[in-house]
Simulated assay, not measured.
Amino acid sequence: MKVFVTGTAGFIGFHLAKRLVADGHLVVGYDGLTPYYDVTLKKRRHEVLSENSGFRAYIGMLEDKDALRRAVEDCQPDVIVHLAAQAGVRYSIEHPETYVSSNLVGTFNLLELAREAKPKHLLVASTSSVYGGNEQMPFKEAERSDFPVSLYAATKKANEAMSHSYAHLWGIPTTCFRFFTVYGPWGRPDMALFKFVSAIEEGRSIDVYGEGRMTRDFTYIDDLVEGISRLMDAVPVIGQPVEAEGVTDSLSPVAPWRAVNIGGGSPVGLMEFIEAVEAALGKRAQKRMLPMQQGDVVATASDGGLFHALTGFVPQVGVKDGVSAFVEWYRSYHATANLAE
């Protein structure tokens, strides 16, 4: 099968492309290599992928529709997985224009090309942040998600709405998956785990927002990739909702479209997460307790009923093992980088 994946130099896109190539699929990746964080890390991910003949990379911005078209036409995809985006809740407060450009204009370009390419399935990355001010826990796909508290979340909610309209107008089978705090090897330097490990290793203090009272539904990267790969085969069809006890399908009544949570399903307190980091490193953290930041939410929790009904899969990796795997990768990666210098 031929799969077009945007964001293959990113954390999730890298792991997904690696898995798909290993499964024997042809993957054409598209990434802008933006300097939001260390471009060297992004280039290294692409280098790893390019070691396999089943992967081809195109470098270009989502906003460059002609470049994007050339890559899609080269692939002639059976499936499109759209992961590329400007990420980060806090960054969206300081640089809102990049979210409008990448997440709105860029996703519009991708949808237009999906209309032309007519893939068997279009999968679009969303986020648990769309639940925003929703206080009903755990988050269920069929519940309202109309109160985003960051521009990042608002653009992702807009992506869901945009993709629904294209699914309705042009009959593109579409699944939007909502991620919940993904972590693991090759992770993003702007995320808490990378920051915690880096600071503790170097003897610096870590910033603990919300004074440590937050909880997150952490999802290990291998579990997420397994979920995405299984959802590729769960193509939505109008009039064919999931029928499982206790599960309400988010399938649209007017389009082959649904939203699906992919979460660990076992929320963990921030302080417990930090304890797992300390245990994996064998070092104690110096903690700087800080108030909540704008755009953050106190807690996230995924209802995994629909995801399980569609895929038969339940996330397997707990925080202790997942954090240990990240620390092992982090030390190995930086040891290799130091030798190269």
Rank of each mutant, 00 (worst) to 15 (best):
I12G: 11
G13Q: 03
F14S: 03
V28N: 02
Y30N: 01
R44S: 14
L49E: 02
R56C: 01
D66V: 08
L68P: 00
L68D: 00
C75H: 01
L83W: 01
A85L: 02
G88W: 05
G106C: 01
G106A: 05
E116I: 06
L122R: 02
L123T: 07
S126G: 11
S129Y: 02
E135V: 06
P138S: 07
F139Y: 14
P148E: 04
A153C: 05
A158L: 07
A161I: 09
S163F: 00
S165M: 13
A167P: 06
A167C: 11
F177I: 02
V182H: 04
R188A: 09
A199R: 13
R204P: 04
D217V: 06
D217I: 02
T219P: 10
Y220S: 10
Y220I: 10
L224A: 14
V225W: 07
I228G: 05
G239D: 02
G239N: 13
G239I: 07
E243M: 07
T248R: 10
L251S: 02
S252K: 09
V254W: 12
W257N: 12
V260Y: 05
V260E: 08
G264Y: 07
G265P: 00
G269F: 13
A280F: 03
L281T: 07
L281S: 10
G282I: 04
Q286Y: 12
M289C: 13
L290D: 11
G295Y: 05
G295L: 02
V298R: 15
T300L: 04
A301N: 08
L310E: 04
V319S: 10
D321R: 15
T336P: 03
